[in-house]
Amino acid sequence: NKSHNQPSAGRVPIGNPGMGEAGNFGGNNFMPANGLTVAQNQVLSLIKACPRPEGLNFHDLKNQLQHMTVASIKQAVDFLSNEGHIYSTVDDDHFKSTDAE
């Protein structure tokens, strides 16, 4: 029973012709590729970085993001949990990341 292994046809590298037209992402509203804002990314990476099994609690988050208001941290947390990036663990103040892998 010979399996016929067909090599995949040569991949044609896709050129990037109109790079100049891409427009620059100027301004302070920088949005990284994953569709999250800077604040949301900061919150997410802090939660990801937490080694504790119960996750990072809101208090720690607040302490490490002193440039952000409690309301904006809450907002980011809400958004992230709505999107499924994080979830609450032992109580509503502890969060863990799903995409920690």
């Binding site: 709505n82 999107e83 499924g84 994080i86 979830y87 032992v90 863990k96 799903t98 995409d99």
Partner: peptide, 20 residues
Amino acid sequence: LVRIQRNKAAALLRLAARNV
């Protein structure tokens, strides 16, 4: 603990739904 598992499962489902 059940709650955590459930939250995690729900979060993963949401994430999966976003990625469809």
